[in-house]
Write a protein that binds this DNA or RNA. Sequence first.
DNA 1: ACCTTTTTTGAGAGCGCTCTATACACATAT
DNA 2: ATATGTGTATAGAGCGCTCTCAAAAAAGGT
Lengths: 346, 346
Amino acid sequence: MSKLTLEEVAKLAGVSRATVSRVVNKPERVSPKYRERVLKVIEETGYQPNQAARMLVSRRSNILGLIIPSRADLIFTDPYFAALITGISRACNMHDYTLALFVFHSQEEQDQVYQRALGTGLLDGLIVTADKITDPLIPQIIARKIPAVYVGRPLDKAYTSFVDVDNVAGAYMAVSHLLRLGYQRVATITGPMSSTTSMDRYEGYTKALAERDRSIEDNLVVYGDFTRDGGYTAMRQLLPHHPDAVFVATDTMALGAIQAIHEANLTIPDDIAIVGFDDLSPATIADPPLTTIRQPVNQNGMLAVETLIDLLETGPVPPRHTILPTQLIIRATCGAMKFNNGNYVP
Amino acid sequence: MSKLTLEEVAKLAGVSRATVSRVVNKPERVSPKYRERVLKVIEETGYQPNQAARMLVSRRSNILGLIIPSRADLIFTDPYFAALITGISRACNMHDYTLALFVFHSQEEQDQVYQRALGTGLLDGLIVTADKITDPLIPQIIARKIPAVYVGRPLDKAYTSFVDVDNVAGAYMAVSHLLRLGYQRVATITGPMSSTTSMDRYEGYTKALAERDRSIEDNLVVYGDFTRDGGYTAMRQLLPHHPDAVFVATDTMALGAIQAIHEANLTIPDDIAIVGFDDLSPATIADPPLTTIRQPVNQNGMLAVETLIDLLETGPVPPRHTILPTQLIIRATCGAMKFNNGNYVP
DNA sequence: ACCTTTTTTGAGAGCGCTCTATACACATAT
DNA sequence: ATATGTGTATAGAGCGCTCTCAAAAAAGGT
C-alpha cells in the first residue's frame, strides 16, 4: 500500500486533489454526488490529512500552548493548577485543539522552554498563568505579537487579554464576614507579593478593614508562599500577636495554618477563626471544614481557552478582560455556624 | 521586514539555502568561515526555522504525546500523576521535545481525543499510562505502528515497550513486613482490578501470605478505586472483620482508611497497623505518618520518555521492558517503631 | 606541475497540503 | 441559435524546509 495522501484519495475517487481537499475542509461546497464518492474513499482508506503539510500552508496548527511559569514540582501538587488544567484541557477538547504543556524545573530550563514555546511558530496561541509579575515572558509575547490569554491579571492591561476572578471582592467578602461576626484582631496570611493575585487579595483585606475604620496592624500581616508549609510557618509567626481570626489567601496555606493552630492547642473557630480562598479539595478535607471564598477555577480555564480561540479566529482585536465573581462558602472555621444553631443568616 | 525564511537568511549571508540549513542542523559539516557568517546573520535576525515546513519534510515533529486514559478530574488531583507528569515533562525539556497532553473528561470525548492523538501524524511518539487493561487504545497504537512506551505494565508484552515498578515485590515487602511484626489478620485494600498495577500489588499480598502458609481470607480483601473516598469506604467494610493490619494499595486510599479507623475510635498502629504504597505527599501528611512502599514515580516518567526517544532514534527494535525497584519506608503506622525504642531494625 | 581523493557548496526536487484563478458544464435569458 | 450567469471542478503555484546529487574547491600524492 502506497503512502496515503490527498493525491491518492483523489485518484481512487476519480476527482482532483482540490476536490478532496474541499470535501475535507468545506464539504458544503462540493456537490453531493462527488462528496459521497470522496467520503466513501476516505472512509475505506482511513485517510487522515497530514498535519504538517496542512500547517505549512494554512499557518494554523490547532495547537495551543499552556505556559506555567512556576516550578513544576509546585504546579502539579497544587489543586489550583489541577482545576485550571482540567478546565483548559476540557475546552481544548471541545474545540478540537491540542494542548501542549510548557513547564520548567529550574531557572536554566526556563529560557530554553520559552524559546520552544514562542519561537517555532508551532502554536496558534498561548495560555499563560500570570504568576510572577516580573516574568520576562510577557514582554516577549507582546513583542512577538503572539496571540495569548493570561489567567490572572497581568500588570500590563493595555496589551494583554486575560481572565481573572475578582480577588479584591472575594477577599473583601471574606474579611467583612469575619468583621461582621465581631472578630477584633483579624490577621491575614498573604501569598507572595510578586503576584497580582496576592496583591489583590491583600487589597480586599485592607479595604474591608478600612471601611470599618480599622487600621492595619503590621504584626497581623504575614507573607506566605502559597504552600502548606508556608501557611504553617506564617501562622506560627502570627500566633504571638494573638489574632482572633485569620484570612488566609489560599486554602492550601490554610491547611498549614490550621495545623499550627492545633499544635498550639488552640481550637478553631473558638480561639481563632479562619477563612480561606479557593474552595478546592483542601477546603473540604480540612478539619474542621474550611469557610472559604469559592472561585471558579475550572470555568476560568475554559474561558481562557475560549477567549483565545475567539482571538485567533477574529484576528487582532483590542484586548479582552473578563472578571469572574467569587462566592463566600460558609463552613465551620469562621464560627458563623455556632451563632445561630448551625445556620448562618448573613 | 519581509518574512524571515531560510532563503532570506541565505541571501543575507551570501550563501545558498542548503548551507544555512546545514548550519542549523549539522554545523560540523560546514566550514568555519561560512558557519560563522551564517550564525551571525541568524543571531542578528533572530531567525528560527518554521516547524511546519521542517516537519513536512523530515517527518519529525519533536512532539511527544502523553495519553492518560482516566477521567481528567481524577488525574490532576492524584499525586501519582503529578509526580509522573513532572518526570515526563522534565525529560522532555532535557531532550528538547514538546509535550502534548491528551486527557478526556467523558466517555464521548475519548474517541475524538484518541483520533487526534493517533491520527494526525503530529506526534513522534506516545507515552501512555497503561491504566485500564481493556482500553481500546493499545490495539490501535499497535495496529498503526506508532512508537509508544507505556507507564505500567500492559497485558500485551510482546508488542509493547514499557517502564514499570516492581509492584509485586513492593507489595510482598509491605505485607511481609507486617507479618514479621506479628500481625495475624492482615487485610488489603486493593485498587480496581482492571489495572495491572492493582493486580500485581494484590499478587504481592497473596505471595507474602502464601509463603508463610497463611490462607487468604475473602473478608479481608476489599476492592478500592484509588481514591481517598474509596479507601474510606473500603476500610469501613473491613472493620467488622477485625483486621489488625492493612496493606493499602495506594497512599491516597490509606488516607481515607486512616480516617475511617479514627472515626471508629481505634488507634493506629495499636489497634490496626497500616502500610501504604507510593510514598508521595499523602504519606507524610498522614497522621500518623505513613509506613509505605516508595516507588520512583518521577524517575519512571523520565525513563519512559528516554526509552521512547531511544526507540524513535534507533528505529524499530524489539520492545523494551524496564522494571524499577521499590523500597520500604518505615514510619509510624506499621508499629515497627514502638518495638525498639523508635528504631526499627529489620 | 598534474592527477586523484576528499571536503564543502549549490542547484533542484519534492514533502502533502490549501487556495486562487481558470475552465467547464449546464441552465436560463435574449 | 447565441449570450449571460451560476455553480462546481481542475490546474497550478507555492508554503519553508531537507536532502540527494553533482559541481566546485581544497588537500594530498607522485
